[in-house]
Amino acid sequence: MPRPQCPRCVRPATRCLCSLIPSLDSRTRVLLLQHPSEVRHALNTARFAALGLLNAQLVVGEVFEDLQALLHPPGYQTRLLFPAEEAQPLQAYTGSDAPLLLVVPDGTWRKARKLLHLNPLLAALPRVTLATGAISRYRLRKAPGPGALSTVEAIVQALQVLEAPASFEPLLRPFDALIEGQVAAMGEETFQKNHADINGKLNGHS
């Protein structure tokens, strides 16, 4: 018999994290485009980001039929948060007259690139990038390279730049709790033996 599940955070009811999810407003609008393979992922941090931000939307799929409307809400300038040689640093948009719609693909790097390939409107967007060298708080898996963050960490870092001095750190509370729960489940000794020297996270996003 399946365990009862919280319909909001989609965690087992006995480990619901809704009490840790903030309700934060932002001038920047965040559009999360989530690959279907991420929906049941144990660390579905995109969902926590969408739940914790009032001006955010999470859409799941591979091909987004209404993408034109999603990408161009009135009054916003749209940018894709994804690396590229021509990507501009987010600092270039601080103090901008028009707020950003920040589009964030959610999935492994391979799945995120697939979303761009299947949705040419998405791939054609001007790109922005985060500062290099950030270290993920996800301590249980090795990152593929420097600056590889979970989706919620990437969003927090982006909003901290765009909306300084406002703090979006509270968005990380359920993420931190998930990690602590995984460490506790494996036991401190196992964690120290296998993971204590690892910083970073598996994906560009998850």
Rank of each mutant, 00 (worst) to 15 (best):
L130R: 01
A134H: 14
R137Y: 08
D106T: 05
I135G: 02
A134Q: 15
N119I: 12
R110C: 00
A112T: 14
L116S: 01
P144V: 11
W109C: 10
D106Y: 02
R139F: 03
S136W: 01
L101W: 13
G133S: 06
I135N: 13
V128M: 04
V103Y: 13
L125R: 09
I135T: 14
L140A: 04
Y138D: 01
L116E: 00
L125A: 09
K142M: 10
R110F: 06
R139Y: 10
A131L: 13
R141G: 02
L100T: 07
R110K: 15
P144G: 09
A131K: 13
N119D: 01
R139M: 03
R139G: 04
A131S: 15
L121P: 02
L115M: 03
P105L: 10
L115S: 00
A134D: 14
A131C: 11
R110A: 09
P105M: 11
K114D: 04
K142V: 06
N119T: 05
W109K: 08
L118I: 12
L101G: 00
P144C: 04
K114H: 12
W109I: 06
L122F: 11
V104Y: 08
G107K: 07
K114R: 15
K111L: 15
Y138V: 08
A143G: 15
L102G: 05
A123P: 03
H117E: 14
P144F: 00
K114I: 05
L140T: 05
K142T: 13
L130M: 05
L140P: 01
W109E: 09
L130S: 01
Y138W: 06
A112K: 04
L101D: 02
K111D: 14
H117L: 15
G107N: 13
P105Y: 10
T108D: 07
N119Y: 12
D106N: 08
V128Q: 04
A131G: 14
T132P: 13
K111E: 15
P144D: 08
L122N: 00
R139N: 04
H117P: 00
